[in-house]
Design a protein around this nucleic acid. Structure first.
Lengths: 111, 111
DNA sequence: TCTAAATTTGGCGAATTCGCCAAGGATTGT
DNA sequence: ACAATCCTTGGCGAATTCGCCAAATTTAGA
C-alpha cells in the first residue's frame, strides 16, 4: 500500500496533464464558448459576435480549447466551425453552480 | 427568444464567478489535494508531506480552495484539518481523464 | 486577377499566478 | 513564562496569462 504523494515524476505528470485541461476551462469567455457550443456548433465570427471581443482574442481562446482536446474545428469555405467534443465539460458549469449555491446558503444562514 | 451573449454585465458576472471556482481546480497541486481529501480529511502538515512543497505554498493552495468554497477547514489544537465539501470536483478529474484518453486514441489512429 | 471577408499568428504591455523565504500569530506542553 | 509546533500572511522575482493591434494566410466571388 503506497501512500499517495506528488513526489514522483509520474504522479506529478498525471496531475499536470489533467490540470492543463481544466485550465482550459478556467476562463469566463472559454466557459461561455463551451456552453454555447453545447447547444450548437458555431463559426468564429458568430462566437466573436456573441462574446463581444476582438476576433483574434476569440480565435486564441478556441485554439486553446482545441489544444486541450475539448473542441474540434472544421473548415467550411472561409469560415471555421467549432464543435464541442467533450460534453463532460458541461458538468463543470453545474458543479460551479452547486458550489456557488452552497456558499450563498451558508452566507444567508450566517445572518 | 434572446440570443445568448456575453455583452451584458449579468451574464458576464455569472461566467466570471463560475470561472473563479474552476480556476481554483486548475492547478496540479490543488487537483492532487482535492483527490486526496476525497478519501480522507487531512491537516496541512500531512498534505505538505504528501505534496512535497513548502508549508506556506500548501497553505496558500488550501486557502484558495477554501475561498472558492471547495473545501472547509477545522481547527484541532495547533493543527488545521481540511475537508472536501464539493465532491463534484472529483468529476473534473474523470472528465480530464476522458479527454486525455480520446486524445490518445485519436493520436494512435493517425499513425 | 483583384478584392473582400474570415481566421490565425506574432508581439506588446498589463495583470495575474507561482513558490519560496521571512515574519507573525495561535496553541500545546514544560 | 518559555519553547516548540503548526499554520497563515506579506512580499519578492520569475513565469504565465490576457486582450488588443498589426500583419500574414486562406478562400470565395466579382
Amino acid at each position: 500500500m503506497q501512500m499517495l504523494t506528488l513526489n514522483n515524476a509520474q504522479a506529478q505528470a498525471r496531475y499536470e496533464a489533467r490540470a492543463r485541461i481544466i485550465k482550459a476551462l478556467a476562463h469566463p469567455t472559454r466557459l461561455f464558448i463551451v456552453d454555447v457550443l453545447a447547444q450548437q456548433s458555431h463559426c468564429v465570427c458568430e462566437l466573436t459576435a456573441m462574446v463581444g471581443a476582438d476576433t483574434s482574442t476569440v480565435s486564441k481562446h478556441l485554439s486553446l480549447l482545441k489544444d486541450a482536446g475539448l473542441v474540434s474545428d472544421e473548415k467550411r469555405g472561409t469560415q471555421v466551425y467549432y464543435h464541442l467534443v467533450a460534453p463532460c465539460a458541461l458538468r463543470f458549469l453545474d458543479c460551479a453552480e452547486a458550489v456557488m449555491k452552497v456558499r450563498l446558503e451558508k452566507q444567508l444562514a450566517a445572518v
